[in-house]
């Protein structure tokens, strides 16, 4: 993509224009997306696109190599009964599991994303965060999902947050950096917008809503607000930024509504897993059930779809 070649201009965080957000207006706008009717061919196509955008994720204290291997197998074999299904976009794991995951998906095109920077709290010194990130990269991670320092953000230390992101981006080198805002802790859409802008201007390749550990996570309102930040940045600079809602998107319907939103705000160019991802684990099977329903004409049971 030619867009990636454009060098980002460094702007001091104090000089970023983040418009204020009226939450009720956002809710009304989101309701419009939700009222779109996606049927027949466009539904089937949409479901397949969504499937291909999933970052299949396991981020638990009890993760083991065995669990990660199973998940990776699922990533590559979503539903072998159906021959023409895409795979998911990536698997997302802790740094300690990156090497295992990498071996499982090697050569398949499915990427390995690693969370880092003292995920999920981000409560660690910068040098620890850099080492955490470097470790994941050394283990073979293609993508890094960092968390921002929400405490610093909420106490108004925007420069700190900006600099931290810029440093991690520097560490990442060619690996794509997703910046998790943990919007459930930011409380207001104004904060979500401001954090989105800081992340984008500091070097994020992707902005991501949540860790999955905090509720609410990827609500349509939050994703909408972040997509508008992506759009404004693109309109201003011509540089594309990716978006990843994560947590809480477990149904096909909601996934399709997210696609509608991406399409109508950013356009079809963003409708690939290069620019849009879903951080989710149970979404994949719901989409698979929908696809099978559309193709067979009968409603499906989860008994027929492998959970891992």
């Amino acid at each position: 993509m030619k867009n990636k070649l454009v060098k980002k201009e460094i702007i001091h965080p104090d000089n970023i224009y983040s418009p204020s957000i009226d939450k009720v207006g956002v809710e009304e706008r989101v309701a419009r997306f939700q009222s779109r009717s996606i049927k027949n061919e466009s539904k089937l196509q949409g479901l397949k696109i969504a499937l291909n955008m999933i970052d299949l994720t396991t981020l638990e204290g009890k993760d083991t190599p065995g669990k990660v291997k199973q998940m990776c197998y699922k990533a590559l074999h979503l539903h072998d009964v159906h021959p023409n299904l895409p795979s998911v976009a990536a698997v997302c794991v802790y740094p300690s599991m990156v090497r295992i995951a990498k071996n499982e998906v090697k050569g398949t095109g499915v990427k390995v994303a690693s969370v880092s920077t003292a995920f999920p709290s981000g409560q660690a010194p910068l040098d620890v965060k850099i080492r955490d990130t470097q470790f994941a990269l050394d283990e073979g991670a293609d993508e890094i999902d960092m968390v921002i320092s929400r405490g610093k953000f909420l106490s108004g230390e925007y420069n700190f947050v900006f600099d931290e992101i810029a440093k991690i981006k520097e560490t990442c080198g060619k690996a794509r950096l997703k910046v998790i805002l943990e919007t459930g802790e930011l409380a207001t859409l104004d904060n979500v917008r401001k954090a989105s802008d800081i992340a984008i201007y500091a070097g994020a390749d992707f902005i991501k809503t949540s860790t999955g550990k905090i509720q609410p996570a990827a609500t349509m309102q939050v994703t909408y607000t972040m997509l508008m930040a992506v759009k404004d940045y693109y309109d201003k600079t011509g540089i594309m930024i990716g978006m990843k809602p994560a947590g809480g998107i477990s149904t096909s319907k909601l996934a399709l509504h997210n696609l509608v939103m991406v399409k109508e705000i950013l356009g079809n160019a963003w409708l690939t897993n290069e620019w849009f991802r879903f951080g989710a684990s149970s979404l994949a099977n719901d989409i698979l059930m929908q696809i099978m329903k559309m193709e067979t004409g009968v409603y499906q049971s989860s008994d027929y779809f492998s959970i891992d």
Binding site: D22, K23, V24, G25, E27, V30, A31, Q34, A187, T188, Q215, P216, T219, M220, Q221, G248, L254
Partner: peptide, 13 residues
Amino acid sequence: HPIENIGGSSSSY
């Protein structure tokens, strides 16, 4: 005038 409804998502999701 809108009344902001803070405290979590009030949408259908």
